[in-house]
Every structure is written in C-alpha cells, then in structure tokens.
C-alpha cells in the first residue's frame, strides 16, 4: 500500500541498520520520510534505494553530525525551512564504545552522550511541543536492553540508554491526557548492524552468539508498537529475556553476567 498518506516521518541514523529498516516500513505505508544521518554518501545511497522501491513517497535527506553542539536545533530549522511538518519522530541515531572505562576514549564518549541523550532530548522537546499543540504525533525513542542491566565494558553507552528509557517513561506519564500523542520506547537486543564495528566489539562473545537479532525484525517490532501507541517494545524473545533478567536478578549479578558476555571470545 503506497498511496501517500500525506504524513512525514523523521528518522535519525537512517542510512543503515535499524534506522534504515524503520524508514522502509514508513515508506511502505505511504509516509514521506526525512532521512537523517552523518555521512552524506551513505545517506544518499540509502535514500536512493528507498526512492526506487517506493516511488510514491517524498524522500528528503539531511546529512548532519548530530553529536555536535547545536546540531539538533540546526536539524530542526532545516526541516522547518523546507516546510515539512513531522508527524512521526524516530530518535534512533546512536553509537557505543566498548572497553574498560579506564581505557576508553573520553572524546568519543562525550560525543556519544551528545548524540544519545542531548540530541534525543532536544529533538523531543521541539517536536513534542508541536505535536501537543497540533493534537497528534508519535515519537519512537530507541533505547536498548542495556537500559535494564548494567553493562561493564559499555558503561557510558548503557548509561545513555538508561537515560533515554527513564526520560521517555517520565514523559509518557506527563502527556497521558493527550491521547493522540504517543511516545514509544524501543529496547532492541544485540542487533546485526554496524553498531558492533563502530563500538570495536566484533570479537565480543555476545556478538558471536545466537543472541544477535536481525535489524528488520527489530524495526518491525518498533514500528508496529509505535503505530499502536505502545509504551514499550521489547522486540524478539531475546530482548524480553534480557529485560526479565534485568528486572529479576540483582544488579551485581547482572553486571557480572554481561561483563563476561561482552569480553572477547578466547581464540
């Protein structure tokens, strides 16, 4: 079904992985898309694929580094200047950095905090205001199963995902009376995307285990949940197990388990 719905979705981190799969789902349902990502070449390639597969929708692109100060507001202005109204906001762009906190790169972690929390907060602020004034809109916040249990070797990343979950759940209560404005928290399990490469964790045990799920399946869960106005989506059984474990076992035990799963496989 591809007739143009007249509505537009903005997706950050749209050139690959879960963001790209979500973009496809929006396009398939006839929604226009604004695809946002850092690297223009990858973004254009991805956008071209979407345009080819779904010729009846409008595909806009904005390439911008959302880990920079002021970038979220710049993005907001760019979209406004193009006269585009956003009905669906997907805060998906994010990355991690694996390693002992003692040794990891501070600059990369500060950039991570900017992208994973500050940008999410700023875009949510701008678009939520509009959605509430208009009386309609949906926001999908991509958190992670990492929000449910401490992640030694991914300490800052898990912290940022805990931030997103807490932040979004507070908002859900705040906007309760606005029935047509919803916020959905998507908590993916380890997923087959370039996250592992960027985080330098290709040799981690978990990455080489059957726990890793497909991006399209994770996106499907997130998309359906968002359109249904669900509060939380734990896509795939693996995600549900992570959350159950997180809630049931004490944090110190969870931390030890995750620690061993994130360590490299022994050759």
């Amino acid at each position: 079904m591809e007739n143009n719905s007249g509505k537009t979705a903005l997706i950050t981190g749209a050139s690959s992985g879960i963001g790209y799969e979500l973009t496809k789902l929006f396009a398939k349902d006839g929604h226009n898309v604004v695809m946002v990502a850092h690297h223009d070449d990858k973004l254009q390639q991805a956008a071209q694929q979407i345009k080819t597969e779904f010729p009846l929708i409008r595909v806009e692109t904005v390439s911008i580094d959302l880990s920079k100060d002021g970038s979220a507001d710049r993005l907001y202005s760019i979209v406004q200047d193009r006269g585009i109204q956003i009905e669906y906001l997907v805060n998906n762009a994010g990355f991690g950095e694996k390693g002992q906190f003692l040794e990891t790169d501070l600059d990369k972690e500060i950039a991570m905090i900017h992208l994973n929390t500050i940008t999410v907060l700023t875009l949510t602020k701008r678009y939520l205001r509009e959605m509430i004034n208009r009386g309609s809109g949906r926001i999908l916040q991509v958190s992670s199963v990492a929000a449910f249990l401490p992640h030694p070797l991914l300490a800052v990343y898990a912290g940022t995902k805990s931030f997103v979950k807490s932040f979004s759940e507070s908002l859900q209560d705040e906007i309760k009376e606005h029935k047509n404005v919803t916020i959905t928290v998507l908590c993916p399990p380890p997923t087959e995307t370039n996250f592992f490469e960027v985080a330098h964790m290709e040799n981690s045990k978990v990455v080489n285990s059957p726990q890793v799920q497909d991006a399209d399946e994770v996106a499907r869960g997130g998309y359906d949940g968002m359109m249904n106005g669900d509060a939380r989506v734990l896509p795939t059984l693996v995600a549900k197990m992570y959350a159950a474990q997180g809630i049931t076992l004490p944090d110190s035990i969870n931390a030890a388990i995750v620690h061993s799963q994130l360590e490299d496989i022994k050759k």
């Binding site: 912290g159 931030f163 620690h259």
Partner: peptide, 16 residues
C-alpha cells in the same frame, strides 16, 4: 534521566 545514567554507569564501573 541523569540520575538513571549515574546508576547504570556506576554499577558498570563497580564490576569493571
């Protein structure tokens, strides 16, 4: 949310 961050980050550090 900032305090949820502190909890998660801190517990990861404790294990490390």
């Amino acid at each position: 949310a900032t305090k949820a961050f502190v909890l998660s980050f801190g517990e990861a550090l404790q294990e490390e």
